[in-house]
Write a protein that binds this DNA or RNA. Structure first.
Lengths: 365, 365
DNA sequence: CCGCGCGATGTTTACGTAAACATCTCCTCG
DNA sequence: CGAGGAGATGTTTACGTAAACATCGCGCGG
């Protein structure tokens, strides 16, 4: 009623809008569309949201007006009115590890499928302070829920800063009692890796583990150890890397000097790659002299020298479950507190074989 | 004035808020804080935004009230009022290629540094329809600007659907005249790769190119060709892969049979990896018999067998420039239409050497 | 033939914030 | 000692949308 006399012709976005502070300008609002279509803005809203109770004829008129003005619903106003943003925040360290990236991708796809967008919150340095900082930024971010790809021990200090209404799902962590956790079945996969090598006839299995402080690394190492104990084997000393191929190479130089080392379970494929190079340089053939198994099944694993036997992680499923769980929690449909595990799959390629002793035995027959 | 008699005690979020439709509930608003602190909501706003003109004493009272109520500014309302979301949208195909991921990461970091969040919009299948779909979703998304990591020819059909006020910056494309483009200097890098091999004494250089339809692949192939012509060499036929290590392997099996092939420039490191495996299988030593150079310098490149000579891409810089450009366009500070190129850097490792003929010559001396 | 009811549409209001403007209180200076 | 002004704070309003409520007109049954 007040705009009518100011802009009698109904030209949208004229005058007052131009002087606005914001960066977005000249956007047609519902009122503009309504004026052009000769209906009320509420009717425009109904059309925009696909509600029933609008004549087909009116609907077409409104749609035409929308098109002419290039109308786009203002999501800020929508979010304000509806009280939700239809956006999920994802907090992660760098995207330098395969697992994080693949999980993120799966989350984004699942979220898109549910009509949710994904907002990325990178944390440069994985210290508690940094994480807390990320969370406090997230607090005033347009986000309905949060998925954290992170160790829980880093998360703990940060969650206190989280507004209570924001639901959280965590990947790559324990603490299933306090949070809803989705993760790859690290233990099951590691157990399968060790079993595979033992079944080939190896006396024991060495482990090239991930960095101290990584939950995934810890679980894989623990399960490796347990599987050996279970099979009455003596666990060799644990060798640690930092997930990188370079660290795998360095560890490999050490392992290559152990004559009795015939089988190595690397905690990820990148380290296995470096390991392969070190063994090659030291003249130890894979798999004839040493068997190597990885974890992750990165796309390149099949092209290593030799093609790497490894444990395939179903990141797509992990991502899907994250989104499913977090949305369910948001909707208060049975918040699944606890850990959901996604199984791994053993992919046998050419980097594993029976140990030299057995192979020789076979040859002599 | 109307809420005062309804909730005389000033308990925040009581009654009316609970019945709201949205999922977020029980959040304290400025009015709640204002009531508790005994000031006006405008003063709360001033404190919240760090404006001057508030007594230190008042400020502390307000901060205390905020803390007590767990007040978090409502970003939807903020965005509505301010007309901006402080969010940048990123559209990309899958996150399966190194380049896209690293660029995304750099964008996220740069954006965070500027106080912007990044919203991810994955496009499952890179068809024009899919892209258009992603854009139309993006339109009603809370986004001030868009960075597209995509071929322009896929983008073209989609941009028509973009609201005119949303600025776009493109990576991995030509068409610098129509869009603001930031990209790695594909041509310069490829030229350097070819020159490196020619300088080592190779008669010519084969090229294992990326898939048809990829702009980056096209530019690298073109520059490879041009560099050979420039040096008066005969370009061998182009061999194509699809960026994957597996395709590099298949191509490598073919190349291994060409006796005269002593130097290969692979359009990315993954294909180089597969290529290395194929050459190894066929008994052609790298670099003694065949030199291989890659492109990207993925973290694992130094751990290949042998460590891969490659062209390092500065993704961090690409991401930074994307954010810088898109923000500058948003603020109408000289929209740099045109292409900004980020130089590559040759990283010489162990996969390149003089050709067998020369090496023999050296030995005989 | 009249009123009831239902479907289509219009009007009012509130979401939470922040700009613009209004007011109020001191303190300074002539 | 009073006018002027600067700084602190309060009040009004609008951002664009959508729920809730109001109204209007038309068809159908009593």
């Amino acid at each position: 009623m007040d705009t009518a006399d100011r802009t009698p012709t109904g030209v949208p976005g004229s005058g007052r809008r131009r002087s606005r502070a914001g960066i977005r300008s000249q956007t047609a609002s519902m009122a503009d569309v309504a004026r052009l279509a000769g209906v009320s803005s509420q009717t425009v809203s109904r059309v925009s949201n696909g509600y029933a109770g609008v004549t087909e004829e009116t609907r077409q008129q409104v749609l035409a007006a929308m098109k002419e003005l290039g109308y786009r619903p203002n999501s800020a106003a929508r979010a304000l009115k509806r009280g939700e943003f239809r956006t999920i925040g994802v907090i992660t360290f760098s995207l330098s590890t395969t697992g994080n990236v693949r999980t993120l991708e799966a989350i984004a796809n699942s979220a898109a499928h549910e009509g949710y967008a994904v907002t990325l919150l990178p944390v440069a340095v994985p210290t508690q302070d940094e994480v807390r900082g990320a969370f406090s930024r997230l607090e005033e971010l347009a986000v309905d829920a949060v998925i954290v790809i992170m160790e829980v021990h880093l998360l703990d200090a940060a969650t206190i800063a989280l507004p209570p209404h924001v639901q959280v799902v965590v990947v790559d962590s324990d603490a299933g009692d306090r949070y809803t956790v989705v993760d790859t079945d690290q233990a099951g996969g590691s157990h399968a890796a060790v079993r595979h090598l033992l079944d080939l006839g190896h006396a024991t299995v060495w482990h090239l583990g991930g960095p101290d402080g990584s939950f995934a690394a810890q679980r894989r190492a623990d399960a490796w150890h347990a599987a050996l104990i279970e099979a009455d084997r003596t666990p060799p000393p644990l060798v640690r890397g930092d997930w990188s191929a370079e660290s795998g190479y360095r560890a490999g130089l050490v392992l290559a000097d152990h004559e009795d080392c015939t089988a190595v379970f690397a905690a990820n494929d990148q380290m296995a790659l470096g390991l392969l190079r070190a063994l090659h340089e030291r003249g130890r053939r894979v798999p004839e002299d040493v068997s190597v198994i990885g974890f992750d099944d990165i796309p390149e694993a099949g092209s290593f020298l030799p093609p790497l036997t490894t444990l395939h992680q179903d990141f797509a499923e992990v991502g899907r479950l994250c989104v499913e769980n977090v949305l369910r929690k948001m909707r208060h449909e049975g918040a699944e507190r606890g850990t959901t595990l996604v199984p791994t799959r053993l992919v046998v390629r050419e980097s594993t074989a029976p140990p030299p002793s057995l192979a020789q035995g076979l040859c002599r027959k």
